[in-house]
Design a protein around this nucleic acid. Structure first.
Lengths: 345, 345
DNA sequence: AAGTTAAGTATAAACGCTTTCATTTTGGAT
DNA sequence: ATCCAAAATGAAAGCGTTTATACTTAACTT
């Protein structure tokens, strides 16, 4: 593989009979510094030589890489991204297209347990990052050090340094639970990923409790099944509920993926959804529509969430005074979509 | 945002009282060129100053970026990645973890219709790329120009320049069809994404025809429903089959995602799977297990596919003579997993 | 003691680009 | 013709690294 030498700005300059500075000017849209004829000559040369700039060199001098980091959570056990969950892949896909539209590229990555994201952000000179999910305190502290714009998706970290996009999870949890209560359910289980401080699950849990309390229903800790956001855990919980809790008539799963598992678990225990047990999910991933039976769930616009996060980040990156932009919290609207997994008692 | 100046190798050198060369040596594992005490001093300085190297600068001089491009197909209409399909997200997730393990980062991207991948590979000085799916001829021609190692996933482009990882799709198509035939089906529909040259679908289609022929069944073009790899199209086709072709007893969908749609379409036409119509899919994405009814399908190890692609690429990148490594075709094994969507006639 | 060698270290060029600033050219105005 | 401002151009420094090369020192040989 004899690597042909790169075509550089120098080649272009020579070919056009001008200095590298001139070439750089037209490359950077500062054409007013160059005469129209020269611009044309340079354009021509660029075309003829098929010149493509080197972003590393550019990054070095401009101190901007046109690179954005995107972090998504990993499975607890292995080090794999939980990209399989359509919730994340749909967001990533929307973030990617928005970024590309603006000439940015995306480095997709998980972050090793206990390790920081400092390394990659500094190594790659990232212009910004979008972080999904929730991490240890320390992680955020380090992130701030890097001094790049950060957008947090689904995090309640209370620090104005970070911009955020998310939903009103407490309200979502409330809505879901209330929806069940309104249909006559009193003994309502909660199946959920681990309830961590500043995470979405914590808020949804709070909403669940608020709805219960408001309806005068005693909160029973035995009814919360907390472990991980996965089909597998939902399945397990579904079985446990169907087998061990005949008094429970409905379950609120804090993610559609979990709800699928719950339903499957219930079915395999010989009960039916929604005849014997009602189930409501959260997210409305595109699969929920196609599930059998179609899942009743709390809908959030996932694509919008991704797009908003990208837009917000770009806005901060491209503002002249990134430190002055006030860090807003973009809130994506919420609604219940009624399908066929909840019945009225 | 007062950007504190980067900590550079110079700072480290000064702090340790040595030259930048020495620092660079220990950074690059050439410690034998430096005395043990100096190494220690430098290590200390690095730690104390919290030094993190700049990969742009490194890339510039080493002409290697530790960056790998990953391309996945986009939806026809919009410019969005079809990452929602778990088939892709599972691969990406496995590729990512493998790459990260080896100190590489991944730039995830689609490629704009008609545009080339040349830009990004040159701009970013990519060390290699993994390309999923199939693109116009021209695309590959340009790709070769860049002279970086490329691994193609699911492509039958006949060019030894590229390494490949894939399955025996013809055999897969054959197996699926044969499976149905063996269970008494004669009128078998094929529902598939567009049959493009050198794509997996073309091969599966060929396998379908071979099985038919071998069984002495007349191939009926009316039985192939060709459009796009999507739930939506499957749904449409499912309806069309259930409503307009009472003689058809089984359908082979060339992707699980499509099979889901087909089944849904059939059900909404008032027929049942597998009672009235049998359906077999392809891929065995993790959802197929959880689908109701659980999908009978041709299984390929998607995670393995991703990992193999990453490994293969790394192997070529890190070999001293990348042009000498012979470009193999890694073949992932195939099998049928029997679940509940096919019945014997 | 002089010479040789090896080991350790430092200097400086190079990678491809942007951008400051000095210089040259142009074209009015006088 | 002369002057001047404005426009166009170019030289060169610098971004943070690596690495070839040069240099210094220490350690052996004779």
């Amino acid at each position: 593989m004899i690597l042909k030498r790169r075509t550089t700005i120098k080649d272009v300059a020579r070919h056009a009979g001008v200095s590298t500075a001139a070439v750089s000017y037209v490359l950077n849209g500062k054409e007013n510094r160059v005469s129209p004829e020269t611009v044309e000559k340079i354009r021509e040369a660029i075309r003829e030589l098929n010149y493509i700039p080197d972003f590393s060199a550019r990054s070095l001098v401009k101190n901007a890489s046109k690179l954005v980091g995107v972090i998504i959570p990993q499975t607890e056990d292995s080090k794999q991204l939980i990209l399989e969950n359509p919730f994340y892949s749909e967001m990533v896909s929307n973030i990617e297209s928005k970024l590309r539209e603006h000439g940015y590229h995306l480095i997709l990555s998980g972050v090793d347990k206990g390790k920081s994201y400092l390394d990659i952000s500094v190594q790659r000179n990232l212009d910004g990052a979008i972080i999904m999910g929730i991490y240890p305190e320390q992680f955020y502290a380090e992130l701030k050090e890097v001094k790049i714009p950060i957008v947090l998706i689904d995090s309640y970290i209370n620090d104005t340094y970070f911009s955020k996009v998310g939903i009103d999870d407490e309200q979502g949890g409330y809505l879901a639970t209330r929806y069940l209560i309104d249909r006559g359910h009193r003994n309502i289980a909660l199946v959920t990923g681990s309830i961590r401080k500043d995470g979405v699950v914590e808020k949804r849990f709070l909403g669940y409790k608020r709805a219960l309390q408001e309806a005068g229903i005693f909160y029973n800790p035995d009814y919360v099944f907390e472990h991980s956001v996965s089909y597998a855990y939902g399945y397990e919980a579904g079985k446990a509920i169907a087998a061990g809790h005949p008094e429970i008539t409905a379950v609120f799963a804090t993610a559609d993926m979990v709800a699928f598992g719950v339903i499957q678990g219930i079915k395999e225990s010989g009960k039916d959804v929604p005849e014997d047990l009602s189930v409501i999910g959260f997210d409305d991933i595109f699969l929920s529509r196609m599930f059998v039976p179609p899942l009743t769930t709390v809908r959030q616009d996932i694509a919008l969430k991704g797009r908003k996060a990208a837009e917000l980040l770009l806005e901060i990156i491209e503002s002249d005074e990134p430190d002055v932009v006030d860090r807003k919290m973009e809130e994506i609207p919420l609604s219940i979509v009624e399908r066929q997994t909840v019945r009225s008692l």
